[in-house]
Amino acid sequence: MFRPVVALVALTLSSAVWSAEQCSVDIHGTDQMTYDLKTITVPKSCKTFTVNLLHPGTLPKNVMGHNWVLAKQEDMKEVIDDGAKAGEANDYIQPGDKRVLAHTRLIGGGEKDSTTITTATLKAGDHYAFFCSYPFHSTMMTGTLTVGG
Results as ranks from 00 to 15, higher is better:
70 L>S: 10
55 H>Q: 08
73 Q>D: 15
61 K>W: 00
40 I>R: 06
38 K>C: 00
41 T>M: 04
66 H>G: 02
27 I>W: 00
53 L>Q: 11
53 L>C: 10
33 M>W: 08
37 L>V: 14
39 T>E: 13
28 H>C: 02
68 W>R: 09
41 T>H: 10
32 Q>M: 04
55 H>P: 11
37 L>T: 02
68 W>H: 10
66 H>Y: 01
37 L>G: 01
53 L>H: 09
35 Y>A: 03
49 F>M: 13
49 F>W: 12
71 A>T: 15
56 P>W: 03
73 Q>T: 14
32 Q>K: 05
72 K>F: 04
56 P>Y: 02
30 T>S: 14
51 V>D: 14
40 I>T: 12
58 T>I: 13
56 P>C: 05
60 P>W: 05
37 L>Y: 03
49 F>C: 13
45 S>M: 11
69 V>A: 12
38 K>S: 13
46 C>I: 14
34 T>S: 09
29 G>H: 06
65 G>C: 06
40 I>W: 06
37 L>F: 01
57 G>A: 13
68 W>G: 07
41 T>K: 11
72 K>R: 15
25 V>G: 05
36 D>P: 03
72 K>G: 02
31 D>N: 05
30 T>P: 00
70 L>H: 09
67 N>E: 08
62 N>E: 12
37 L>I: 10
42 V>P: 13
48 T>Q: 12
48 T>W: 03
75 D>S: 13
68 W>F: 15
64 M>A: 14
70 L>F: 09
39 T>K: 12
66 H>L: 01
26 D>H: 01
47 K>C: 00
75 D>P: 06
37 L>Q: 12
51 V>G: 12
39 T>W: 02
49 F>D: 14
39 T>Y: 05
69 V>I: 14
33 M>D: 10
50 T>F: 03
40 I>G: 09
57 G>K: 07
68 W>L: 14
31 D>S: 06
44 K>L: 13
35 Y>C: 06
55 H>S: 10
70 L>M: 14
37 L>H: 10
55 H>C: 08
47 K>L: 08
37 L>A: 07
26 D>G: 00
45 S>N: 08
59 L>I: 00
48 T>I: 05
52 N>V: 07
41 T>Y: 01
70 L>P: 09
72 K>E: 14
69 V>F: 05
61 K>E: 07
48 T>E: 12
30 T>L: 03
44 K>S: 15
38 K>L: 06
54 L>D: 04
40 I>V: 15
57 G>I: 08
29 G>T: 04
51 V>N: 11
48 T>Y: 05
53 L>P: 03
53 L>M: 11
40 I>Q: 07
60 P>Q: 08
28 H>V: 00
43 P>A: 11
44 K>I: 06
63 V>W: 03
36 D>Y: 01
46 C>N: 09
65 G>R: 02
69 V>S: 08
36 D>A: 02
30 T>M: 04
31 D>E: 06
43 P>Q: 09
67 N>G: 05
72 K>W: 03
50 T>K: 12
74 E>C: 01
58 T>W: 08
51 V>H: 12
73 Q>W: 04
70 L>A: 07
25 V>R: 10
74 E>V: 15
62 N>Y: 11
41 T>E: 14
44 K>M: 07
